[in-house]
Amino acid sequence: MALLRLMQLGKRFGGLQAVNDVGFSLRQGVIKAVIGPNGAGKTTLFNLISGALAPTSGEIRFQGKTIQGLKPYRIAALGIARTFQNIKMFAGMTALENVMVGRHVQSGAGFVASMLRTPRSRREEVAIREKALELLDFLGIADCADIEATSLSFGQQRAVELARALALEPKLLLLDEPAAGLNIYETAEVGRLIARIRDLGVTILLVEHDMSLVMDISEEIVVLSFGEKIAEGLPAEIQNNPEVIKVYLGE
């Protein structure tokens, strides 16, 4: 059964059909990439899946359940985590605290328990901290734990954002241009990291411009152009697809 299934998904902004009748599915445990020229509707597609936007038509099924139109926090709670194209750190919080927020769904202390520091909330707090440190370590930025997240380098902030998303223990991870702004070495590193995350059992859907990365790590590729799906297949198929070549290179 497909983990995620998009059916005739559409999103219209006034006169602009940003996503038009897009449908594809994502099997458990694969890395799938969504590519396409600027303005093809890739980020809009992500916002539809994560609940930041509601689709104007079509359906999104996650583990067989319809999720379109749910609030983003509910979709996150179902096990869909995401990163952002332009990194969104929680300013004023350390890298560790940023990742600890990612444990929100996996913990439950409310306002009163938090204020009174009940024994249960303390135990939970210890577990949250341990898990967050473990994730920072997994991403190789454990020594940045106590530094304010917004003062870290770009690459480190990407890693913190990734750790924060993983803290959710997602079944599906949406990565919006994980290699944007990184040099070729950092990009290769991100590629290895994504493969390692997949090996943990997390299914990955990514939007990416860097073709070397996409061809390197993804098992399946969907190509969007002007909001419509123009191709879907294995990397080798996509590379030789005349329609895709036309879109990318012109006639």
């Binding site: 994560s50 609940g51 930041a52 609030k71 983003p72 926090y73 996150a76 709670a77 985590a81 995401r82 952002f84 969104k88 750190m89 929680f90 300013a91 004023g92 919080m93 927020v101 990612g102 929100h104 769904v105 924060r164 998303a165 803290a167 959710l168």
Partner: peptide, 11 residues
């Protein structure tokens, strides 16, 4: 306070 979209996205 830091980012309402990112807070939403972690649930």
């Amino acid at each position: 306070h830091g980012s309402i979209e990112a807070a939403d996205a972690v649930g």
